[in-house]
Amino acid sequence: MNHLDLITMQEAIDLLEVSRSTIDRWRKFKRLPFIKIGKEIYFHKEEIQQWVRQHSKVHEPIDENRIDQTIRMTTPDTITIGYQSQTAHMWSPLLMKKLGFFEEELAELNPTRPLQINWINAKNGLELIEGMIAGQIQIASLGDYPIMIGHQLSTIFPNFNPVLLAFDGKTSQSEGISLVIPKDLHFHDVTDLHGHTLATVTNSSAGHRLNRLLSGINATCEVINQDMNLSYSNIIERGVGVSVMWEPYVSLSELQGAATMHFDGFTDDYLTGLVALDHWAQLNDDIVIAYLKAHMRTHQFAREYPLKAAKLLSELTGISHRVTTSIVSKVRWDAAVYKQDLETLKNLSITDQSFTRNVTGSKGCIPYRGYYLNEASKRLQLTSVSDRPLEGDWSLDYLY
């Protein structure tokens, strides 16, 4: 090998100061030249140096003594995770933070250089999208409609390039989002909404479904934008007519005697997912994979120990154990991305033009980067989830 000026995979890792997965990705997607002899991978040292020159923003001769310094400058010292503790379908980051899974994965990734984690608890998805546009948040948990809003906004902000990494909590037929009616206010069908004031979070998964519901009926209603906490208080105190809520507020309202209605118009699956900045993810793929490993471990914990998960969530949120237990058992904790899920996201922007009509140039659904989830599943020794969306219905045999 020395006579041929070839270096091994490990020598290439040491030379470039990147991970094996990064080199594999570069080989697959960026044509990093390599030689395969049997099952072993080798690299021509001079060809690697030339490839790096071609992919550098400033074409300068490579100084091998400066490679380590360059890597240290581009590797972040902190990572900011955005989540929403007020949305039950996105309780995974709350559990992950409590269990310390992400810290464990990062420590395994680089024991000598700890990475500081900042957790931002937002009231809604748009707040997290604004943080991502500003470059302050790298990974965020969002509802299905905010995911598509972020995709639409990428046509306005050229440096904002969100991509889908995985899903979080899922429920079919929008279960977990309901119309909540104060007690003693009797509703029989959707036409009874006429003349009432409706509250929800606009440009949210609940707000989208309310808009679609109202567009299909002949009723005049005033829709006001309210935080879920305020909507819940107004429902209990009769300060507002009706509210479209998501869990845990639906279950909390029912405990207080409010009625809930789940209309046939709520037919889309309710999806929540993880979104990252594409350019940041490509530069920090090992961190992204570490987060997805922690994400899937959290899912596994919620599935295998639902009572323990519910108890922790009750302590963290102040919500009764009865409510958290009910919600944890109803949600499908599955990170896998199915083709039908991407179609569901795509349909959100098609059926609701209230936001997207002023945004041009965006086509299709948010890009899905399946490489990271697939790599995370392999490192956890799970069945490979594939780089591409899965076909068919949600599997009962494999959850991630």
Rank of each mutant, 00 (worst) to 15 (best):
S377H: 00
L126V: 06
A258K: 05
Q50G: 02
G169A: 11
L128D: 00
W51M: 00
T298Y: 10
D278P: 00
L95C: 07
T272W: 05
S243M: 08
T197H: 12
D268F: 13
V337G: 01
H188P: 05
P162K: 05
L193Y: 03
L198Y: 06
I129T: 09
Q256S: 10
W333S: 01
L153F: 06
L271S: 00
S386D: 10
D68K: 08
V250A: 00
R25K: 13
I139W: 01
R303G: 00
E237W: 12
H188L: 09
T344Y: 07
L126Q: 10
N2W: 01
I37F: 14
F101V: 02
K98S: 15
G392N: 09
T317L: 10
T74Y: 08
I289D: 01
E315S: 12
A376V: 01
L382V: 06
Q152G: 07
F301D: 06
D77H: 14
N203Q: 12
D269V: 00
E60D: 04
Y371E: 15
A281Y: 05
F34L: 06
T78P: 07
V240S: 02
E11N: 13
P182V: 11
N358S: 14
A259C: 03
R332Y: 08
S395A: 11
L380G: 14
W333Y: 03
R27T: 11
D352V: 05
G207C: 08
L390P: 11
V240L: 13
D268Q: 13
Q282N: 11
G135L: 08
K45C: 05
K339S: 15
K36H: 07
L312P: 03
F102P: 05
A140S: 10
I133S: 07
R322M: 12
W394Y: 14
T78A: 10
Q340Y: 07
V337S: 03
S243D: 06
T356L: 04
D285H: 14
Q136L: 09
F355V: 02
D68C: 03
M228R: 12
R25S: 07
R238I: 03
Q173D: 09
Y83I: 02
L345W: 01
Q84K: 10
E247V: 07
G82C: 03
D144Q: 15
I235H: 01
N203E: 15
I67T: 13
R297F: 04
D341R: 02
N203L: 14
Y305N: 15
S377M: 04
T197M: 12
D397C: 06
W119K: 01
E11D: 14
F29T: 15
E237S: 14
T356N: 11
Y145F: 12
M228E: 09
K45S: 02
D278N: 03
F266K: 02
L348A: 03
E47F: 04
A122H: 03
Q282R: 05
S395G: 02
I35G: 08
Y249D: 01
W51Y: 09
I133P: 07
S19N: 13
R212H: 04
T317Q: 04
Y270D: 00
G216F: 05
K330H: 09
I62A: 04
R332K: 07
Q50I: 03
G125P: 01
K170S: 04
Y145L: 06
R388Q: 14
H55Y: 11
G131I: 13
